[in-house]
Nucleic acid binder design. Sequence first.
DNA 1: ATCATTAATATAGCATGCTATATATCATTG
DNA 2: CAATGATATATAGCATGCTATATTAATGAT
Lengths: 147, 147
Amino acid sequence: MEFDKSKSAGYLTNHLARLFASELQNAIRHLEIAPAQFMTMLELWREDGQTQKALVKKLDVEQATMANTLTRMERDGLIRRKPNPTDARSQQIWLTQKAKKLEGPATEAAGSINNIALADLSEADRAQFLDLMRRVIATLQPETRDA
Amino acid sequence: MEFDKSKSAGYLTNHLARLFASELQNAIRHLEIAPAQFMTMLELWREDGQTQKALVKKLDVEQATMANTLTRMERDGLIRRKPNPTDARSQQIWLTQKAKKLEGPATEAAGSINNIALADLSEADRAQFLDLMRRVIATLQPETRDA
DNA sequence: ATCATTAATATAGCATGCTATATATCATTG
DNA sequence: CAATGATATATAGCATGCTATATTAATGAT
């Protein structure tokens, strides 16, 4: 009647996330960026000059977490925070040239981690895995439905 | 040609792990234990008096991480570290009465989180999800094959 | 037995995530 | 327009995880 961790989705997800994070960190270490910085840049490569609030929503992390990540990215010369001309409370987050140049190598590194991780799955299994994950996320996600 | 995070196993896993952790924390908050403490107790409920090294191996976290978690658990009155009679370098980790009493309520809370998370999946999908997760973990896991 | 190596834990320092709270600015309303 | 409430960001404090290094004790080789 014991709790079997190998049958616990939460336990397995935690374990897997740590393994992925470790691999990713290794794969992008030579670019001198960390996983959370990479995640943030994913959004900024797609659209530069977003506000902190927009990034918070897209990455589904707390505002305080994003503020700290951005502070480290600014320290590391990846972004600059510029005043928002239309609202003095907020700022626009702009990638530096250095950060822009990282898009190719960083996304390639991340892509190869995914390939390595899923290497033992068939094409159908991979699709199913992603689909199941998205469905469980949707179930747990705390209603990101408001405006 | 952009990196699509909704198709990245690593990204989705990270997101899902944060959602699970948040739910678990909520569900066990009233027991005054934190997720990592719960994970550690899972092993100690199964077998009390283990060494730190044994816990490190079973939970697949770094030794320093476990040392810190155990320090917090000791601070919170969940465990006691006692000298190992056969090896003065190591210690035996013993659950307190307080920690022993938490097994029922804590495993129930964790179980219901899993149920909630997987509520939208069929029985077959749930089994597949766990299986896929175990397979990807096995692929990424850095050879825990030594003695 | 002694010296070098290995092994078990601890500590320092950092990144990422969280909650709770503070601050500044905007928007609304009387 | 002044007061109030909402919004955007920052900061404090903590847990969990990591790497790197220190400390202490056991082992092994000479």
